[in-house]
Every structure is written in C-alpha cells, then in structure tokens.
Amino acid sequence: MQIQTGLEAGVEGTVLKAEVRDLDFHYGAFHALKRVSMPIYDRRVTALIGPSGCGKSTLLRCFNRMHDLYPGNRYSGGGIVFHPDNTNLLAPEVDPIEVRMRISMVFQKPNPFPKSIYENVAYSLRVRGMRNKNELDDRVESALKGAALWNEVSDRLKELGANLSGGQQQRLCIARALASDPEIILFDEPTSALDPIATASIEELVTELKEKVTILIVTHNMQQAARISDYTAYMYLGEMVEFGVTDQIFIKPTKKATEDYITGRFG
C-alpha cells in the first residue's frame, strides 16, 4: 500500500528509511495497534506523540522486535518495510536479533549494565563478535564522543556505569546504542526520568545525531517534539491520527483531534 502523506514532494532530499504499513498488534486479546501506517525518513527525527496509553511505546518496540521476548504478543497484520533492502522487519522468517543489530534502542529509564563504563559501550560490539582490543578501544571512544560523554569519562572508563549521574547514564546508554553503527535509533521517552539540564543536553544530542542516523523518538512532551523533530505522528487509542512535518502538525494540523491535543484541550 502506498502511504498517503502528501509530504514527500514537499520536503527536499528526503529518502524513506522505513514504512509502517497497516500494522496491527495484539497483547493477547488486546488490540493495541490498529492499522497503523507511517513513513520514517532517513536521517530525520520523527516524534511519536499522544496521550499516555495510546500505543507509542508499543509501536516503537515493534521496530526492534522487543515484543518477541514475551509470550502472547502478536504482530497480527501489516508490517514494517525497511529500506533500502525492502525487508519486512516483522516477517516471521526475519531473525529478531538481525533486526536488533540494525536498529538499536534507548529506554525510558537509563539502564546501564552493572559493568564498567567501557564495558557498557563495548557490549554492543562484543555481541557482534568484535574481539580486537584496539578496534574496541577506538569504537568505544568514538561512540562516547558521539554521545557527548567522552570528555566527562575518558579518565574513568573502568568505573561502574551506575556511578554516573542520571543524565550521564542516559548518554552512556546512547553511546551503547550508537557504538554498533545502527541504521535507526529508537528512543522511548529518554528524558522523562531526567532533570531539565540533562534533558536539554539529550535533546541537543538527538538533533546532532540525526546527521548520521535515523531517529524515532517517543515523547509525551509536546514542546520537546516541537523542538527536536522534523516529523511528528499523533496517535490516539492505538490508531495513527495524523502524520506530518512537525511545523505543520503544530501550526495547522488537518485533524480536529490533533488540534485539540496540541492546544491542550485534551490529553
């Protein structure tokens, strides 16, 4: 199915990275995503907004097949087509581990492993079989630089990740997600557990990262979506209400429901 956004023509130089097509998802008997469709553009930030419980995290976690970890979860229709190779990430024959090697994730609450700062970042390389010490050192350093953390931790890479502040821990998790050179990074409300200063540094980082990697971010903070995203998708009760360029969604949404949510009359 062709996704009708009417926007591809309007934005210069955009390339599709992935398309969600008529996606249905069930938690047991509960129908959590209902025929959701949306495009994901290459090296752009796409924000998912909507009231709590509308299915933002559920949609995000389809992208790295996180739902496969729990029994009873079903991708019950449609799929996510990944470009340029045109694979359906949700096809049963596609190995979820392969998907997770291409698409990494940063969680709501910073979740560094109880290991050293170095080992936290190196882990996503080790699972890919990297053993060479020099190569690991280089990749860890560049990931920490990419996550704007290197200057703060370069002299204490052997310390526990858990000893860092909340904002630093979240940047450590971003470095871990970045180290393996993913094609997409998923963020699930990455700043909701952080103070305003740490939040600002993560937001700045996200806008820098999009030079290299496609970003899909869930946020319940509309100002955040407006500040950092290029595209915004508004979801409600498991359905995709409206997708568009962020400015358009916030300035003149086409749907009444979106406008009500944006203006705070609801949600």
């Binding site: 996180m66 581990i97 997770r100 969680f107 979740n111 871990r176 997600a177 393996s180």
Partner: peptide
C-alpha cells in the same frame, strides 16, 4: 531488555 536490544 537492554541486553536483547543490543542484539544479544
């Protein structure tokens, strides 16, 4: 989940 998300 963090471990699986790394591709483990």
């Amino acid at each position: 989940e963090g471990s699986y998300a790394c591709g483990a």
